[in-house]
Amino acid sequence: MNAGSGGYGSAGEDTRAGCVCPPCRCAAPSSRSQGQNRHSGRNGARGRSLGRSRVRAVARARGAALSPNTVRTYATGWNSFCSWADAQGVDVSSAGSDDFQGWLVDLAAEGKRPSTLRTYRAAVVHRYSEWGGANPARDPQVGRVLSGLRRQAAQAGYVPKQAAPLRHHHIDLIAETAFEPRNNQPGGRLETPEQAARRALVDIALVSVAHDGLLRCSELLAIRWGDVVAAENSGGTLIYVRRSKTDQTANGAYIPVSQFASKALERIKPPNADPDALVFDMSAGTVARRLKAVARTAGIDAENISTHSPRVGMAQDLAAAGFDMAAIMVAGRWSTPAMVALYTRRLAAADSTIAKHLQTRQTHPSQQRPRNTNTTPQAA
């Protein structure tokens, strides 16, 4: 699988390292590579050179259309289909709608979530689109099977998990308990007070900045010290988000953070910090583990705490403070209101016109306690 044949990865690189399917089943349907040279004649050598250069440039541009996370996710979905096809004796270059339907049904039987099935199908659709020609993964019958599997999962009691929120009061609890030493050293040893203090300062900065900025994990980990700037008018602190999931062309956005988060950043900033150095130089997995750890220490149920929890928490804090959906969408850099509505639905229901009306309803007469509580029959 190479860039010229629609593989995932940078142009000119062999991306078969991430693919588990056999070479014969991973090739594009056409025997002619998209990068095959068609130049000949008097300028053949020059034409071949320009052709190869152009193919590499085209492949680089096409590869840049997807974010690295999407590339990895699509590679996982495509590898899943290739492995299934190999086990079934199906050649992916000639697979049909029935094959994709069977693959999705088998994945559901293995316990894959509806969201995973949808993503995997998108990965296969993308691969066949890269190859050009017919795209059997787009067949309406495949979509109907996917819808049916989603309905069956709902009937079986499946409920999509949502990240538990980390709201303002949670961050207060985290700040109060973060300095407690933990048994996280090699061999299960307890942290020294100095180690606990260094770790706690980073934890507090991590969760408060992620919360105030409604930051996705990728945005949080991309912040550099040069992106932390003073606001010109208010005297507060702004963080420059260079790009985001909804800003793939890197127009950028400045987001404000609280004085609490600003001071937390000051406490972990190295002397003479390099403007290009990352503020939080760690992996997404490390962020998730640290958030779960600070939540547990603060007495917060950490089962559904994830890297998205501070973002969900701030969305709920804004909704509780009376900000409308449009304002929350702008603050969180959402392109549609769907996720905002999902994150704030409980607060919205409690604050709805109907809920307020029900709060004013008087007790029904039949539920009022009788004044005379003596139910003993009176003597005649």
Rank of each mutant, 00 (worst) to 15 (best):
A65M: 02
L66W: 12
S67N: 01
V71L: 12
V71G: 02
T73G: 13
A75M: 09
T76G: 04
G77S: 04
G77E: 03
W78R: 04
N79M: 00
S80A: 09
S80L: 04
F81T: 05
S83V: 04
W84R: 12
W84H: 14
A85Q: 02
G89A: 12
D91E: 11
S93K: 13
S94W: 08
S94L: 10
A95K: 10
G96T: 02
G96Y: 02
G96L: 01
D98W: 02
D99Q: 04
F100C: 07
F100T: 05
F100P: 07
F100R: 13
F100V: 07
G102N: 11
G102P: 13
W103T: 14
L107N: 12
A108N: 14
A108R: 13
A109H: 14
E110L: 15
G111S: 07
P114K: 14
P114G: 12
T116A: 14
T116I: 15
T119H: 11
Y120T: 10
Y120M: 09
R121I: 01
A123Q: 04
V124Q: 04
V124R: 04
H126T: 07
H126E: 13
R127Q: 15
R127M: 12
Y128F: 15
S129D: 14
A134K: 14
R138M: 11
D139C: 07
Q141C: 06
V142E: 00
G143Q: 02
R144V: 14
R144H: 10
V145A: 05
V145I: 14
G148A: 08
L149K: 07
L149D: 06
R150C: 01
A153D: 01
A153N: 01
Q155V: 05
G157M: 10
Q162A: 15
Q162Y: 07
P165C: 10
R167T: 01
R167K: 09
H168L: 09
L173A: 12
I174F: 04
I174E: 03
T177G: 08
T177E: 08
A178Q: 03
A178M: 00
A178G: 06
A178I: 03
F179P: 00
F179A: 11
E180M: 10
R182Y: 00
R182T: 04
N183W: 09
N184H: 07
Q185R: 15
P186Q: 03
G188R: 10
R189F: 00
R189H: 05
L190C: 06
L190F: 07
E194C: 02
E194M: 06
E194Y: 08
Q195K: 06
A196P: 01
A200Q: 06
